[in-house]
């Protein structure tokens, strides 16, 4: 019955969107435009390849008994960081940065880590504060943290007032989070998500109150600031691998394995591209670009 409800609502949406869209283009020349845009063929092939590798890795990981993931210092420190906050009787502050919205994979990766962090703070009876610049992220985070507290068996410890929207203005957000860090003096500050100019302001303020900092972002410019200012920094794909690393879930671990296979293909293509460019044969790069 539940499945029927889901399918019915989805059908409504799926049929409603094309109807709305079609009503706007009744005068357009529908027949002249081909369905498939041939200029995007290389991206299409790469996408198909990524999907095939993704499923292949899932099958291979299932077939093997155990898959190893290399140790990531920043993720190993999550337990220590929450334990430290509990011992000091001070909260953990987690913020996903100003640069991202809910559509961004980095934000989703940050929310995945938030879920695991929230489960641990619930177990340790430690306060978790989540300020954000985006009301959609705030709503998603509230749901994530509440469910994590329920899963941990401590729904009574969930404090909705600790998850709040600050402002959509970049430096207004930086000022609000800085203010929160200065007032509550968290023992641990987690800066995981998409950060821009506010990255260093937040990291240095957290350092000034003696907080342990775990940071990670998809911005290579801000990553340099985090590496200098924070105790632990998740570099590149480490942020996206975090949920599999921390939960040990087989399906997520297999997707991390898929990343490795894709990396091998990219390395092979880089080597091939290098050799072809040396001999002035640029047909491969021209086709891809």
């Amino acid at each position: 019955m539940k499945g029927f409800k889901v399918i019915s609502i989805l059908c409504l949406i799926v049929f409603f969107v094309p109807l709305m869209a079609y009503s706007q283009i009744e005068d357009a020349e529908l027949s002249d435009t081909p369905i498939f845009d041939i200029s995007r063929l290389p991206v299409f092939i790469a996408t198909l390849l990524a999907i095939i590798i993704f499923f292949m890795a899932t099958y291979l990981v299932k077939a093997r008994a155990e898959t190893k993931i290399r140790k990531v210092a920043g993720l190993n420190a999550v337990d220590e960081a929450i334990g430290r906050a509990t011992e000091m009787g001070r909260p953990v502050l987690f913020t996903p940065g100003w640069g991202g919205d809910i559509q961004r994979p980095t934000t989703i990766a940050a929310l995945n880590i938030l879920n695991l962090v929230a489960e641990k703070t619930a177990e340790y009876n430690c306060d978790l504060i989540f300020p954000t610049h985006d009301p959609v992220i705030m709503s998603a985070a509230e749901e994530t943290i509440q469910n994590a507290y329920i899963n941990a068996g401590h729904p009574d410890q969930f404090k909705p007032d600790n998850i709040y929207y600050t402002t959509s203005s970049q430096f207004g957000y930086a000022a609000a989070v800085d203010g929160a860090i200065t007032r509550v003096e968290p023992a641990t500050v987690m800066l995981l998500g998409t950060f821009e100019g506010e990255a260093l302001i937040l990291a240095e303020t957290a350092n000034s109150v003696g907080a342990m900092q775990i940071a990670g972002t998809d911005s290579t410019i801000q990553l340099a600031f985090f590496l200098v200012a924070c105790d632990y920094t998740l570099i590149g794909e480490e942020l996206f691998a975090a949920s599999g690393y921390l939960s040990g879930d087989e399906k997520i671990v297999s997707s991390i394995k898929a990343q490795d296979y894709m990396k091998i293909i990219i390395i092979a293509m880089l080597v091939a591209g290098g050799i072809l460019a040396t001999f002035n044969l640029d047909f491969l790069s021209e086709w891809i670009l």
């Binding site: 994979p105 989703i108 998809d218 290579t220 990553l223 794909e237 997707s255 990343q259 894709m262 990219i266």
Partner: peptide, 15 residues
């Protein structure tokens, strides 16, 4: 780092 981020984004999106 960017290649790692790109691949991480793809697999997260697929998941």
């Amino acid at each position: 780092i960017l290649i790692g981020i790109g691949l991480g984004s793809i697999t997260t999106a697929l998941r």
